[in-house]
Design a binder for these strands. Structure first.
Length: 572
DNA sequence: AGGACGTTGTCGCA
DNA sequence: TGCGACAACGTCCT
């Protein structure tokens, strides 16, 4: 059946044509090339027991993103005289059958086998100890060998697809074909489209200081919705007008826009605005990197090109190159650390007696903590599968060491499922970071669920967009609606406790209690040099909870006394 | 052993 | 807008 030699490229991630070493290798010196993607029905089929629409492992937005990426990959392959062969079944089994039937001599898939990576592996193993700080990682890693070497970023053709015999080949399925109903609900449709073409467009736009891809189109919808939603808000109107003007300026301007980018050169991650959603403050290239629609090496070289042209630019860790290096930092530590994704039996994770309060956790997950800033971020996660990095910080801190003291692994699972860019090493690494379990230890620094968002977005436009129930709440109460007088709540058509929840905890007292618990937990870890037994941990948990109960009782008595006094006063 | 440093806290003050 | 106080962690390097 097969003639001469044939090779098979197995796409898993790396869903692109440009700078794809596995594809290059597979297509060299071969008569026929089988580009294969295997759909595992177990991974893709709807799970109706999950807490949100999607399969057992992934939220609907990420499945959608993957399918879009596959459609784009197929179309890019077709332009080169090839096509994507979609197969279905248990991947190992399916692949084995095809290799045998098609007499494939060469199987290729993305695996970092290059000398640079092998050398890097050896270096970063660092005697079995991966670097635990960004700076020590930089020292160890140095400049990559391919930093300025040419990458294969375009090609004119691919070998023909071999005869596929009686193996059943499918088109990329639609969501509906996978069993997802009502998927066209605008409400839960991420504005970010999957695929290599989108990725490259987005990259070009970022590099040339343009607004994000699709912004204008998306904008039209938003302007419409926003003006409908709060036609009475003058400041927003002005805000939008300014933005639209900016956009036109950027579009019309002919200034060296294709190459030189001030935005790229001046990028400083911590200075971004987490409440910006019409035009996100970051590149939103993460989902494309995650699925390999964009080559991180190509991205890196593009950024370096910009740096050569501009006079001044920011540096790691805050620069855009720095962001790519963060990715590798977390890959490195995750690779070199056993049980990286859990607290138990981890050599780097602090043992902390997180509580097991499912009600608080569910309130956080479903965006009903009563803190609009936190809830709006969680709604954006459900609807878009993407939030700004600092927004992620706020909700992660709130769930764990800041307010609710719930285990970071629970929050990690929610992000893992719902983010379109969720990446095992990066997601776990950041949860370890934010919960002060590893990498970062200054547990006194807690994001305020009220003032943090306010300083970027005092009018609460972000909240109004993602939590429309609060859209008419006056700006002085939008971050703390429970403080609004009942008359104002009535006028805003949003009664706190009925239309929108009361806060699940009081931030002032909850964060204080969290700090105390963190202090005790740290002391315990120090005492046992990180090797805290389960008995020790649960006895600390018990003690902390008892002390907290006692405090609450005292507080209750105080409140009661005060209430008695108040009642007495009011009768006077 | 001791000091420098750490991608991104908050508040009050000038 | 920028500073110090707050209270103070661990890692890395000398």
């Amino acid at each position: 059946m097969a003639f001469g030699s044939s090779s098979l490229i197995w796409f898993r991630k790396g869903l692109r044509i440009h700078d794809n070493p596995a594809l290059d290798y597979a297509s060299k010196g071969t008569a026929a090339l089988y580009p294969v993607f295997i759909i595992d029905p177990h991974y893709m089929k709807p799970d109706y027991n999950a807490f949100s629409p999607g399969s057992s492992r992934a939220g609907l937005n990420r499945i959608r993103f993957l399918l879009e990426s596959l459609v784009d990959l197929d179309s890019n392959l077709k332009k080169l005289g090839s096509r994507l062969l979609v197969l279905k079944g248990e991947p190992g089994e399916v692949l084995f059958r095809c290799l045998k039937q098609w007499d494939v001599k060469k199987l290729c898939f993305e695996y970092d086998t290059e000398p640079y990576y092998q050398a890097l592996d050896v270096r970063v193993k660092n005697g079995g100890k991966p670097p635990l700080t960004y700076q020590s990682f930089l020292k160890l890693a140095g400049e990559p060998s391919w930093a300025s070497s040419p990458l294969m970023t375009s090609r004119s053709s691919l070998p023909l697809v071999g005869d596929h015999g009686d193996c059943e080949i499918f088109e990329v399925p639609t969501l509906k074909e996978l069993g997802y109903e009502d998927t066209e609900q605008e409400d839960y449709l991420t504005p970010f489209r999957g695929g290599e073409s989108e990725a490259l467009k987005r990259l070009r736009d970022s590099l040339s200081d343009k607004v994000g891809y699709g912004f204008l189109e998306f904008m039209d919808r938003c302007v419409f919705e926003l003006t409908c939603n709060f036609a009475n808000s003058i400041s927003l109107e002005v805000n939008l007008r300014t933005r639209v003007k900016d956009v036109n300026f950027a579009r019309l301007s002919k200034r060296e826009a294709d190459v030189v980018s001030e935005w790229v050169a001046k990028f400083e991650k911590p200075k971004g605005d987490p409440s910006a959603f019409l035009k996100p403050a970051t590149t939103v290239l993460s989902p494309y990197l995650k699925f390999g629609c964009l080559s991180s090496r190509y991205f890196y070289q593009c950024l370096k090109d910009v740096q050569k042209i501009v006079k001044k630019h920011t540096s790691p860790p805050v620069s855009l190159v720095g962001q790519l290096l963060w990715r590798d930092f977390f890959y490195t530590v995750a690779f070199g650390t056993p049980n990286f994704d859990q607290m138990k039996n981890s050599t780097i994770c602090k043992q902390i007696p997180w509580n097991d309060n499912d009600e608080l956790f569910a309130a956080w997950r479903e965006g009903r903590t009563g803190y609009p800033w936190i809830d709006a971020i969680m709604v954006q996660l459900h609807k878009w599968g993407w939030m700004h990095h600092l927004a992620r910080h706020c909700v992660a801190c709130f769930l764990t060491r800041g307010d609710l003291f719930v285990h970071w692994e629970k929050g990690r699972d929610v992000f893992e499922r719902l983010l379109i860019d969720s990446d095992w090493a990066i997601n776990n690494g950041n949860w370890l970071w934010l919960s002060c379990s590893s990498f970062f230890y200054q547990y006194n620094r807690i994001y305020s669920p009220i003032s943090f968002g306010k300083k970027y977005d005092p009018n609460g436009n972000y909240i109004r967009y993602f939590l429309p129930i609060l859209k008419d709440m006056p700006r002085e109460y939008i971050y703390e609606p429970w403080t609004a007088p009942l008359s104002i709540q009535t006028k805003a058509k949003c009664i706190i406790g009925k239309d929108y929840p009361k806060p699940v905890v009081l931030h002032d007292s909850a964060s204080k209690e969290c700090k105390r618990r963190m202090g005790e937990a740290y002391a315990l870890n120090k005492k046992f040099n990180g090797l805290v037994s389960e008995e020790e941990l649960s006895s600390l948990r018990k003690r902390l909870e008892e002390e907290d109960d006692k405090k609450n009782q005292v507080q209750e008595v105080k409140t009661k006394k005060q209430k008695t006094i108040d009642d007495w006063m009011s009768t006077k």
